[in-house]
Each structure stands twice: as structure tokens, then as C-alpha cells.
């Protein structure tokens, strides 16, 4: 049972390694989006400090969105997805492996890059810590819910725009709690409640999203 999970995870990580330029593109996108904001709103340090958590979260969210098509589309065109669906093991297992691989190759690099961007916005060290924690707890929901959206829009023309329309409204609560965690920490009320909600959301998404995703994939190849 576990072997399918591990095989798929290993293969997707290997593919991500052979395609490692993709990760760089995602990271550059994350950086450039965040850097656009000072040009738009002005480089006043206090203003930048205020908007930093929101800007970094929005940038992370958009970077994740743009990388979502990678989760299933190549396997869909190659026919690998069909073979996975014909595997005797439950589809939830390998769906989870693919989403985990996406999270490891997209969200984790973003989390690693976030402190450098936080410096550009003059965030304090402890606020950056809270930001990283909120990203670590919140991005799994992005990958899981986004995986469902990616599976639903698989192979459709205009799939990228459609995917954005489907998943962005669902991402709003994660943005609220993610950026809100840093704000709450800075205002002195403490970020515990926000972080716990993000963690709880991740667990709930972990329990539900793979099923929806597997069902959507089955429909996509039919």
C-alpha cells in the first residue's frame, strides 16, 4: 500500500529535480510580485512594514496558483494518469503523494525565500518567524485545494484562467488567517489562534481534498 505512495513521491521529486528550472521560475515570480508593491504604493518604510505580511502572502498564493497545473497535466497528456487510475491501490494514496511532492517543490522553496523578502520590507525578525510559521501551516491547504481545482480543469481550454477563478475565492480564508497571524502578533494579541486555525484547516483539507481530487481525476480521464 505504502509503496505506491513512496514510488509516486520519489518519481515526482525526481522529475522536479530534472526540471529544477521550474522551481527557480516560481521563486523568481514570488520575488518579482512582492517587489512590485513598493513601486505601486511608494517606499515609505512604515507603510511597507504594515503591508508586508499581506503582500508576501498574496505573492506566495499567486506563485502557488501558477505552479498548480504542473501537478497533473503532464501525466494527463502522457497517459501516466490513466495507468495510475488503473493501479490496484486506492487513488487517494498517490493523489496525496503528488500533492505532497508539489508542496515540497513549491511551497517549501517559497518558505525558504520568504525571510529574504521580509528583509526588503523591513520586517522584524520575530515577525518574520511568525510569517514563516503561518506559511508552513497554510500552504498545505493551498496545495490540497489547488490540486482539486487542477484536477477539475485538467485538459480544458483556458484551463489556467478557469483554475484561478475556481480556487482563488477558496483561498481567501487562508490569506486572511495567514497574513492576519503576523498582524495579530504585531498588535500584541498573539498569533496562536490564527496559527491553530491554519493548522486545523490543513488537517481538514488533508482529510477531505484527496477524495475530491481523486474523484475529479477519474472524471477527467473518462
Amino acid at each position: 500500500m505504502l509503496s505506491v505512495f513512496l514510488e509516486v513521491l520519489r518519481r515526482d521529486l525526481l522529475l522536479a529535480w530534472r526540471n529544477r528550472a521550474d522551481v527557480l521560475v516560481t521563486l523568481s515570480f514570488f520575488t518579482i510580485v512582492a517587489c512590485l508593491f513598493p513601486f505601486g504604493v511608494g517606499a515609505e518604510p512604515n507603510l511597507l512594514r504594515t503591508i508586508a505580511p499581506g503582500v508576501l502572502w498574496v505573492a506566495a498564493l499567486l506563485a502557488t496558483l501558477l505552479s498548480l497545473h504542473r501537478v497533473f497535466s503532464q501525466d494527463h497528456t502522457d497517459g501516466v494518469l490513466e495507468q495510475l487510475l488503473l493501479s490496484p491501490e486506492p487513488p487517494v494514496l498517490w493523489v496525496l503523494a503528488k500533492v505532497l511532492a508539489h508542496w515540497l517543490t513549491t511551497a517549501v522553496p517559497l518558505v525558504i525565500a520568504a525571510p529574504a523578502l521580509a528583509l526588503l520590507f523591513d520586517m522584524t525578525q520575530s515577525a518574520t518567524g511568525v510569517l514563516i510559521l503561518s506559511l508552513l501551516l497554510g500552504t498545505p491547504i493551498l496545495s490540497l485545494l489547488g490540486g482539486v481545482g487542477a484536477a477539475l480543469t485538467l485538459g480544458l481550454r483556458g484551463g489556467g484562467m478557469l483554475l484561478a477563478l475556481l480556487v482563488l475565492p477558496l483561498f481567501v480564508p487562508i490569506l486572511i488567517f495567514g497574513a492576519g497571524a503576523v498582524d495579530a502578533y504585531l498588535s500584541g494579541t498573539g498569533a496562536n489562534a490564527h496559527l491553530m486555525l491554519l493548522g486545523g484547516g490543513s488537517l481538514a483539507a488533508l482529510a477531505l481534498a484527496p477524495w475530491a481530487c481523486a474523484a475529479a481525476l477519474r472524471i477527467a480521464v473518462e
Partner: peptide, 11 residues
């Protein structure tokens, strides 16, 4: 075994 060869080009 279907029409698509189920091959990934990078592997």
C-alpha cells in the same frame, strides 16, 4: 496498454 505510451520524457 492504451494509445498513449504512458512515458515521461525526462525519465
Amino acid at each position: 496498454l492504451g494509445h498513449a505510451a504512458a512515458l515521461n520524457d525526462l525519465l
